[in-house]
Write a protein that binds this DNA or RNA. Sequence first.
DNA 1: GCCGCAATACCCCGATTGAGGTAGAGCGGA
DNA 2: TCCGCTCTACCTCAATCGGGGTATTGCGGC
Lengths: 209, 209
Amino acid sequence: MSDERIRVLCVDDHRIVRDGLALIISQQTDMTVVGVAATGEEAVALFHQLRPDVTLMDLQLPVMSGLEAIRQIRRADGAARVIVLTMYRGDEDIYRALNDGAATYLLKDTVADDLIRVIRAVHAGERPIPAEIKARLDEHADQPALTAREVEVLELVYRGHRNKEIGALLNISEETVRVHLKNVFLKLNVSDRTAAVNVALHRGILHLG
Amino acid sequence: MSDERIRVLCVDDHRIVRDGLALIISQQTDMTVVGVAATGEEAVALFHQLRPDVTLMDLQLPVMSGLEAIRQIRRADGAARVIVLTMYRGDEDIYRALNDGAATYLLKDTVADDLIRVIRAVHAGERPIPAEIKARLDEHADQPALTAREVEVLELVYRGHRNKEIGALLNISEETVRVHLKNVFLKLNVSDRTAAVNVALHRGILHLG
DNA sequence: GCCGCAATACCCCGATTGAGGTAGAGCGGA
DNA sequence: TCCGCTCTACCTCAATCGGGGTATTGCGGC
């Protein structure tokens, strides 16, 4: 009964990875790939059009991030089941995705058979969080969270701007920028901007791009 | 004649991607995956053991990079045919890989059918460089190259070290570190260290990790 | 209503950084 | 052999940055 197959939407910006995933899933008798998307927009549009049972979502997508796509999908349908499948290992990535409604979070290290099992479990309403991911999430809870403004400032530091420029861009004084950065340094446990950017990139607070 | 199939070694650190690629290749009647590796060391060891016709190599590998693996493989066998398959789009990545003996360079955006065609072409002794990659390589030629020492200094800046610390780590004076950085800024066309790191990450001169 | 937090802004001061020089030693190619 | 490049090192000066404060406004939760 092909009507009873789990209908999967597959979202990844790398064509060859998408093709590989689709092939892996298509080989199962109890599931089928009903659509593929390469950007966040495409993912949201196809979700509405296809109403898949499970959406397999990479976080690293051009134009609109996978995180934003998850938000929009979950806002439109609180019962939507989205599995994150990504190479991002940062605790902040994991926290944000699960906090925004992802059913679970898998790294691309995952074995094909495990992915298949998780798709079935999530379709059945479970939320099987891998131990490694759970551990990272616990680490995250121990860390002080940056505020939205602090992330905004740090992002501009990462782009290579000086404090004065950042102040001008955000319409606040250079002094205030310094205050935000001081707090960022405290929270990230570093003593200068390059180290802060480094930590932020590794923890998934910022991303290349 | 299974003996006449193209024997492919598949190197990628993400298990699910490796599985997907292997599945794509295995579906062809004229090629077969004889081995898979997840690190540079494994890749080099398996190359010697299996002597594949074509090696499909990601650049982003733990412990030993794909670039270093290519160097070691090509040093051992100047006729070895290695296809780079990576998400790295930096001109420096492309330059280094092709300069160190890769037969061609594909992005993970590549369509499965194109990958298959390139594997056949490379096995036949061709070097089919995609137009996009060729264009990036031309851009690279217009840019002044950083010296090994300059990259070394920039790497430590990226790690968050101050000039004084970098001097101590490299056993040179802080003054010399400043000179190297001045030259880096000139070559990368930036005016401070965070911008330099940003450009270096995007061009593939440095990598996360 | 009160407390805590986020965001804003200003102060001082020492450390660090970036931009401008000059210069010698060593090495490899023309 | 000589030229050019790389690495090394030092100098000066102005700009930027990081660490230490204090303080006001506004918002949301208890």
